[in-house]
């Protein structure tokens, strides 16, 4: 069963319908094209799903109205969504929820958190167990700045430390 984990714990009542055809429960999350079309014709809030080949910067003109973004990791090896999330946070200044969907596994999560993803959908048992224990396999020290909050480290400009 798919569980939604956020940085403040598991979410029991997910308000979002991530099905591609609107068959699920909750508010529908649109494709990028659908979202931009909606944005052009209305002032409604936008919930959007970014596929690996999408150009996420197309959201720039309407980013103030975006309330939810799902970024898709269709395979463990497909790292495009790490750049999507980085661009959403660093370039577009988006501050709402970014959720990783697809086949999320434990060892991706620390990378995801650093690029600004703050929730994940996963159905992988061992991953859910470790998330429940809040026992993530991440490293607190970093050799590069990233979207997630971290403090500079005395010494070199590129180093960062995550809050413990």
């Amino acid at each position: 069963m798919t569980r939604i984990w956020t940085t403040s714990g598991f979410l029991d009542n997910d308000p979002w319908d991530l099905s591609t055809d609107g068959s699920g429960e909750g508010a529908r999350v649109l494709s990028l094209d659908e979202a931009l079309e909606l944005a052009a014709g209305s002032n409604e809030p936008i919930a959007v799903r970014i596929e690996p080949a999408d150009d996420v910067t197309r959201l720039a003109p309407v980013v103030d109205r975006v309330v939810f973004v799902a970024v898709n990791f269709p395979a463990f090896s497909d790292g495009r969504a790490f750049s999507h999330a980085s661009l959403l946070r660093d370039r577009l200044g988006y501050t709402g929820e970014i959720r990783a969907i697809g086949g999320v596994l434990l060892d991706q999560v620390p990378f995801m958190l650093r690029v600004g993803i703050d929730s994940v959908a996963t159905s992988h048992g061992p991953t859910i167990e470790r998330l429940a224990e809040n026992n993530l396999p991440g490293i607190k020290l970093h050799y590069q700045p990233a979207a997630a909050e971290s403090s500079p480290v005395a010494g070199y400009s590129w180093r960062r430390r995550s809050a413990p």
Binding site: F76, S77, D78, G79, F82, S83, S86, Q108, P110, F111, M112, R114, V115, I139, H142, Y143, Q144, A146
Partner: peptide, 8 residues
Amino acid sequence: SVHPEFSF
């Protein structure tokens, strides 16, 4: 080293 955006 362990770059979050460029490890996949």
